[in-house]
């Protein structure tokens, strides 16, 4: 009988330190068995449980896009027992991955629409996956305008800096990178909080959906801006975080109302959340 709790063995292919505070590292993982890779069919917005034998598992958003073949990638913030250990692991070491888990951004609904992506801090991982997915030459024509507002506290805390710079050069995506503040005289992008920059750039809500991921304080102040821009709650999409264990809607931990965040989520529209207890 197929055991959904059993992780696939993977090898760490590379480890990249993303931020100047060294709290975020990106792990590129390669499946040990080709069959496992073939079975790992994911969609941007989903997550996986990273497993380290002897320490446990952590639910982390998948940062790669399914259009990137041969590996999967996770950007992990160092906060607890498993993540601290993971940050000390090296390329070549063996660990486990269980997934893909959860639902995803509603790509069938987003088809033919303008997509506004708003991200803050290290919540940019599944948003990176989404951007890479939409910009893929096979997919780009399926979507309208793509607008990205992405902010971090300082330039050194932005994720995926090289890719951000490359996307800036493209004319099929409107990038608005911002930082809360910087003393770097060569900083060439925006300065200001994500809600303020969103208001300033005022992406049109016409035929558009917004995907918002970031710290609670950013989300709290961005939502009214989006409402003012004319985005109804059904067209504002976000992804929730909860403490999780099983990741498959069984262990009960991430329950909010009728939903299990790990299985029925993590992606919800604001309209769906308005019908659930505000307990996340």
């Amino acid at each position: 009988m197929n055991n959904p709790y059993l992780p696939y063995p993977v090898k760490i292919d590379s480890v990249v330190t993303e931020t100047e505070d060294r709290n975020l590292k990106t792990f590129k993982l390669v499946f040990l068995n080709p069959d496992d890779e073939a079975g790992f069919n994911y969609t941007p917005g989903q997550f996986a449980e990273l497993s380290i034998a002897g320490l446990g598992e952590i639910p982390i958003g998948i940062a790669t896009s399914p259009t990137e073949k041969g590996y999967i990638m996770f950007t992990v913030n160092k906060v607890g027992k498993v993540t601290n250990h993971l940050h000390n692991m090296q390329a070549g070491e063996i660990m486990g991955v269980r997934g893909p888990l959860g639902n995803w951004y509603p790509w069938d609904v987003l088809e033919g629409k303008n997509v506004v992506i708003i991200g803050g801090g290290f919540a940019f991982t599944t948003l990176r996956s989404s951007i890479v997915y939409m910009l893929d030459s096979a997919n780009r024509s399926r979507f309208g305008d793509i607008t990205v507002v992405y902010g971090a506290r300082s330039p050194g805390l932005l994720l995926y800096k090289e890719e951000l710079a490359a996307w800036e050069q493209r004319d099929d995506i409107n990038m608005h990178i911002t930082v809360d503040g910087t003393d770097d005289p060569n900083w060439k992008y925006n300065i200001g909080f994500v809600p303020a920059i969103t208001k300033e750039k005022a992406p049109s809500s016409e035929n558009a959906y917004a995907i918002v991921c970031g710290p609670p304080i950013m989300i709290k102040f961005t939502l009214p801006v989006l409402t003012d821009l004319g985005f109804p709650a059904e067209r504002i999409i976000t992804s929730l975080e909860m403490r999780m264990k099983c990741g498959i809607g069984i262990c009960g931990r991430c329950n909010i109302g009728t939903e299990y965040v790990c299985k029925d989520g993590p992606v919800f529209t604001l309209e769906q959340l308005s019908r659930l207890p505000n307990e996340y």
Partner: peptide, 20 residues
Amino acid sequence: CFDIQDEVYQSRGERIRIWD
């Protein structure tokens, strides 16, 4: 509802689930 924990003794370990 249950929790999942890893337990290690010397070089062997187990992943167990326990009521939570």
